[in-house]
Amino acid sequence: MTVVFVAPKSVWRQALATETRAALDAGHRVRLLAEEGPSWDETPLDERVEVQWSGATAVVAPEPALVAVVLNRIPLGVLRRVGRGPLRRPADAAAAWWRRTVLGPSTRRRKARTRALRDAHRRAFLAAALADGDFDWIVLHEPQAVELGVDWLPALLDARPGLVTTFSFEPRTEDAGA
């Protein structure tokens, strides 16, 4: 069978590495829809796993140029210069206040926009990656697989009632002879 692991945020990488290897060892072809990131170095995947990276971490809400210059670079640059002299402490305190009070709200808004953009990107990525229907078994490996599945999964389940769905790939009772 072809097993596809859906892990759009890849929050449980240790488990993904273990379970994809178990699926391969059980004789399945294994696909993985995942998010890239440096932490994968600590939990390397078997080279036989066919991985499609979402590219979501590269998606960032842009900061308006005017905000970047007027509210960020100019005032913090001035305070950095002032801080090189004897006014280091008050300049550092002023920079911290500026970041917290002036930049804080816009940074939070930008982070929220980035989250929304990334989720939209992940949804589009999953829909595109699964459009070929080249799988017999879907492992919904994390909460975000369900959250981001509302746009495409119900229709897929209607169309393919025999499709296997699970939340993990681990040794079943029949495999253990129980």
Partner: peptide, 21 residues
């Protein structure tokens, strides 16, 4: 807050049992 997620998860739970050893 998102009934579609809740409904989908209920549907998945009902069809996704894989008894493990």
């Amino acid at each position: 807050a998102d009934p579609a997620v809740v409904d989908l998860h209920a549907r998945l739970l009902a069809r996704s049992d894989a008894p493990l050893a």
